[in-house]
Design a binder for these strands. Structure first.
Lengths: 178, 178
DNA sequence: CCTTTCTGGAACATCGGTGTTCCATTGCGG
DNA sequence: CCGCAATGGAACACCGATGTTCCAGAAAGG
């Protein structure tokens, strides 16, 4: 029976990501509907709105960690590492918007974690990242771009792939030493 | 007596920009307080919330237009023009956040207006802007950067001036042909 | 100085979202 | 096949924001 609960819980979380990423103030009823679940059931799993948000943060954090792991930020030059990281993050989709709209973003994430800072500093040394640009700024830059790229998809009627291409292109340009 | 009404109205608008840029869902009472005005008075000037938002859009649009005018986007190379435009927009401060948080942004602004497109295309021709990058993307890029730069100020405890420097540096890097 | 205009507090009805309770139904799992 | 767990609908109280009305006091302007 454990699996039933787990499945329902996950369905709610997935729906919440989808709905709340588009509108953080959306009523819980909408989340429930999107999850194909009664509002009552939603409250059974997450008694208060804040409980849902809390769980959402954890979920987003987990996915972020997985993505960071896949990106292998310790390998190769700093610039190529950040490129891989962006690719992985970009694929997170709605989670990105969520991290933005809620102010979850840079509080779990910190200004940026140790691995990130290390990656940038490696880039500073190996000449692939402009030493004038601090890690915190590059972190900020990356998130702005990711969000921008994602919203560009719906604005400009452009493929996910094309948007990613532009994002990578622009970040690389911004970061490369002149 | 005309001037009294105008002054009160403006005070409300200014307060609304400040408050709603930080939290678009803020209750009207907060706006009234920030404007040093009774909630009743606020409702006298803007009967419904939507009326206030409406006026806010106009106000933001006006300030945006002024900034664009000051930037003289028709002069010099495309790259230098976009640089000036960013500088002017950056100085709008809270208005920027407002344009983001409310979804006013790219609806009055359109994907980008004619002047903007012309500026970019001039840049494409004069070799200061990478022809691979469409005007719509650069518009998107610019706004993301502006917002990112502005939030960077409070995140990284950095001066307005330093943030602007980084924004300009990054946009230039992203836009310059390789 | 007196009138007209503007103001802001208080009180009120309304509305939508929230969280709770109760109950009938469904459906896993033993 | 039976029983316990999970579900979802209905009804409810509650709360905060909204928008309205009324009135007394302040202030502008003749």
């Amino acid at each position: 029976m454990r699996s039933v609960r787990a499945r329902t819980r996950q369905a709610i979380l997935d729906a919440a990501i989808e709905v709340l990423s588009r509108n953080p103030a959306a009523p819980l009823g909408e989340v429930a509907t999107a999850a194909d679940v009664g509002r009552t059931t939603l409250h059974r799993y997450f008694p208060e709105r804040t409980d849902l948000i809390e769980a959402l943060k954890e979920e987003a954090g987990r996915r972020l960690d997985e993505a960071r792991l896949r990106a292998r930020v310790g390998d190769e030059t700093g610039a190529s590492a950040i490129r891989r990281l962006c690719q992985e993050y970009f694929d997170l989709g709605d989670v990105l918007s969520l991290l933005f709209r809620e102010q979850i973003a840079f509080e779990d994430e910190g200004d940026c974690d140790d691995g990130f800072t290390a990656m940038i500093e490696r880039g500073h040394s190996d000449g692939s990242i402009d030493p004038e640009l601090p890690a915190t700024w590059i972190s900020n830059l990356m998130w702005s771009h990711l969000y921008g790229g994602w919203s560009y998809i719906s604005e400009a009627q452009v493929s996910r792939h094309e948007a990613l291409r532009l994002v990578l292109r622009s970040i690389e340009g911004a970061v490369t030493p002149r």
